[in-house]
Write a protein that binds this DNA or RNA. Structure first.
Lengths: 289, 289
DNA sequence: ATCATGGCAGTAGCTGTCCTTATGGATAGG
DNA sequence: CCTATCCATAAGGACAGCTACTGCCATGAT
């Protein structure tokens, strides 16, 4: 009764109009088939077929049951094909590179989920700078890379976006403005500055260059955002950081938007040298949901 | 793998996020469940769940498989309810009465098919005259009866219809007409007549009475149609029979339609005293297809 | 009538699946 | 560090289900 082979047998009996023929099709003895059918009818407590001398035909109830049995067999077949189609995803590997901030905030939970869904795929991550990501992509050493402000001609999957924010000590003159006030890029860059990179070449310095300005007075350059916040808090200078990297503890600090907001966008792009593997496609597809 | 309980277990694991909890729900040991899941994954050759310290979550492939497994469980449930709903039809009986002609031509194959579809229902037939059918129906002694030209106010299921045909010897004067000629009821009833009843009170005599005519010269009255044909062939007289009862061997006989066609309709009607049983309803439903 | 054929049911015995009990290992939380 | 929780594994046993064989019945041909 609970054996799927028996349901398959049931369908076969209906198709052949004969227990013997059905038994042969599903590869068992006539005796086994006869017993199986009798057992199913006994379990259900109802006759499913009428045994006539030359043929075994379904009863009215049998017809309904057969219909549902076909549904079961269809589902079973669907499982088989699903598994077969998913076989390329059972093994595989993905090499993926990113700069630290996106790695920590976006990629880690994403990849954790992906690993949970695809335990057979080995995902290796490289924590590098944004310029190194491009180098690795060009060299074909990684399958996926996180890039900032991707060129539109490249097929890129946007992970998220944020904007640059000014961080100042609460007692700094510019921080005395109204609660919803902003700071212009020009006036910010003229202040004594703490340059924080977060491991990215796309930082305050490159923003200044792009805007035709320059950083007049760089007091310190640090890699870690938190180091920059301590320095700002101590009054060494002001700084400019991505929204994502804002400090959790903001005592002694004033965070202000720029008057003309500067956004940055980070996205996943595939290798330039190879087409995406099944594993990479699965990852991008998961990202689309 | 081929055990339906295992698929049920699979769904339960997905629902609970835990093998142990699922095992409890389906009523087996944690160990059995663990083995079963491992066995299924081994058979499919793919991992369906990722075992994490606190929870067991489906993989991407697992999600697809679970979806199909739910379909299977749904079908199984549908079978259970179907069988339960059909239980009243497993036992039961139908008493059905008819006059001989319809019994032989319509009812026998119909009931044979019904018996094949509903072997648990005992069908008993009574071969009576058409007037006795009404008596039995009124007395509540039968569940179904075949009646002629049912009153429209009664809920009747039409089985079929035919018309009355004249049968004459080929050398009879009236039989000398053209191939597509007809005979009027009046001129036919004036001939020397062989009255055939077929066990029905609705016969040539009742037709005559209904038409305001009479049978002037009844030479013989017989019950069997075939006896009447022999008598007609021998020149004893002419006769009037239903289309259905026409002879298979027509040598020596001429069959002609009536100028004004007289139809008869036979239909199944239920008992007047009791509502139809589940078995009777099933029979009528089968007839509707 | 008699026999041959084809299909289903029943019996005995064995094989193999699957379950249970018991134990070990890994991890998160107190 | 200890405990609770969850899963995996080992060993043993019970039972389902299969095979091989026989019997029965109905049909159809000789």
């Amino acid at each position: 009764m609970m054996n799927l082979m028996h349901w398959r047998l049931l369908v076969a009996v209906a198709d052949h109009g004969s227990i013997t023929a059905a038994a042969e099709q599903v590869g068992m003895t006539q005796s086994a088939a006869s017993q199986a059918m009798a057992s199913m009818e006994a379990t259900l407590g109802a006759q499913l077929f009428t045994r006539e001398p030359r043929k075994t035909l379904p009863t009215a109830l049998g017809l309904s049951v057969i219909e549902q049995a076909r549904v079961m067999m269809g589902a079973l077949q669907a499982i088989r094909t699903t598994v077969d189609e998913a076989r390329p995803l059972l093994r595989g590997s993905i090499r993926i590179a990113s700069f630290p901030m996106v790695m920590a905030t976006f990629l880690t939970p994403l990849l954790q989920r992906f690993r949970q869904l695809n335990p057979g795929i080995e995902v290796t991550t490289l924590d590098v700078t944004d310029s190194e990501v491009h180098t690795l992509l060009d060299a074909g050493l990684i399958d996926l890379g996180v890039v900032l402000n991707p060129k539109p001609e490249r097929h890129a999957t946007v992970l998220g976006r944020d904007q640059w924010m000014a961080v100042l000590a609460t007692n700094h003159p510019l921080a005395q403005r109204a609660a919803d006030a902003s700071v212009s890029l020009e006036e910010l860059l003229e202040q004594p500055f703490v340059l924080a990179t977060g491991g990215c070449t796309a930082n305050a310095r490159s923003l200044a260059t792009a805007a035709g300005l320059s950083l007049r007075d760089i007091r310190v350059q640090v890699r870690e955002w938190n180091s920059a916040y301590s320095l700002v808090r101590e009054g060494v200078g002001v700084t400019l950081v991505p929204e994502m990297a804002l400090p959790t503890q903001r005592n002694g600090l004033r965070v202000m938007p720029l008057t003309v907001a500067l956004h940055r966008e980070f996205a996943l792009v595939g290798s330039h040298t190879q087409p995406p593997s099944a594993a990479v496609s699965a990852l991008l597809k998961m990202l689309a949901d």
